[in-house]
């Protein structure tokens, strides 16, 4: 009798200890969410490994190394997200767990399976939380890009890998941020960048895997969770390039997010490791 108990105990322990860790992209295992995989024909482009100067933080100016990876050429669209919902009804607006999306999830969709009126299926999907973006990425066998990866890919203008020192490029970015109704435009209408990526600017803000790492990375000199570097005086002190206001804007936006937030002009695109 006792040995039965011991056996059960050992089995239970071994089951529990094998629950996966989802901490690093590429090491993710299936979550408990019973996702149904779907196929995606979305084109991905390869971003070769490289390095760049980190923009923000106590050690700003440090060199960030990025491994080769694949990135969706454009943000995930309403049409693509709808395909995901059809196979994964647990992510429709009426069924989604409140823990994973706040009350503005798919706010403007007509119903669970109808995209907003007057918006094209080829426009980027918005009003989705980080959890939802993560789930979509997993369902197509991909993941979300990290901040480092996204920022690295975004350094490119049309003709070069790194246009961050080009003031005309910074001006172009700032101007694109002023556009309104960004979530209503079709993807791939403007010129792609050096890598073949479309709509890195002038469309929607994009979720990244570690969007909140800037705020909680221990850069703060005090024991607080918020990073004062993003406010007022602190920002001027730690940026590696004071004039890189465009990047400031992106980091500020990321810092203001929580994982369950669903914004009108926040979407996402997926990434994938090069080794399968």
């Amino acid at each position: 009798m006792r040995s039965v108990f011991v056996m059960c105990f050992i089995i239970v322990i071994s089951l529990v200890s094998c629950s996966g860790n989802r901490d690093l992209p590429g090491h993710q295992k299936k979550t408990d969410h019973q996702l149904t995989s779907i196929s995606s024909t979305k084109k991905m482009v390869k971003i070769e490994a490289g390095s760049y100067e980190a923009f923000i933080g106590k050690d700003s100016g440090r060199v960030v190394k990025v491994e080769s990876f694949y990135m969706d050429e454009a943000p995930v669209t309403n049409g693509e997200y709808l395909q995901f919902l059809k196979k994964n009804p647990q992510w429709t607006r009426s069924k989604v767990l409140k823990l994973y999306a706040d009350s503005t999830y798919l706010k403007y969709w007509k119903n669970d399976y109808e995209i907003p009126p007057h918006i094209s299926p080829e426009a980027p999907v918005t009003n989705i939380s980080w959890y939802a973006a993560e789930a979509y990425a997993k369902s197509v066998g991909k993941r979300l890009p990290t901040i480092d990866e996204w920022e690295y890919a975004a350094l490119a203008d049309r003709v070069s890998k790194n246009a961050s020192r080009n003031p005309a490029f910074t001006g172009f970015i700032l101007k694109s941020y002023q556009k309104t109704d960004k979530n209503k435009q079709l993807i791939k209408q403007s010129q792609p960048n050096y890598y073949g990526l479309y709509d890195m600017y002038g469309m929607v803000w994009e979720w990244t895997y570690d969007f909140n790492s800037v705020m909680m990375s221990g850069e703060s000199r005090k024991d607080k969770t918020t990073n004062e570097s993003l406010f007022c005086a602190g920002a001027a002190v730690t940026s590696s390039d004071l004039r890189n206001y465009a990047a400031f804007v992106r980091y500020a936006l990321r810092g203001s997010l929580k994982a369950d937030y669903c914004l009108n002009n926040l979407g996402f695109r997926c990434a994938k490791n090069t080794e399968n």
Binding site: T104, Y177, C232, G255, S256
Partner: peptide, 30 residues
């Protein structure tokens, strides 16, 4: 909710960190 950028507020009448900036950092729609 139709804004693009996050915002906050620093009131010079406040005695406290950031004049309220840390406590009021809001993403569009929040």
């Amino acid at each position: 909710e139709n804004n693009t950028f996050p915002h906050n507020i620093d009131l010079h009448a406040v005695n406290g960190p950031g004049g309220g900036a840390e406590a009021t950092f809001v993403a569009p729609g929040t």
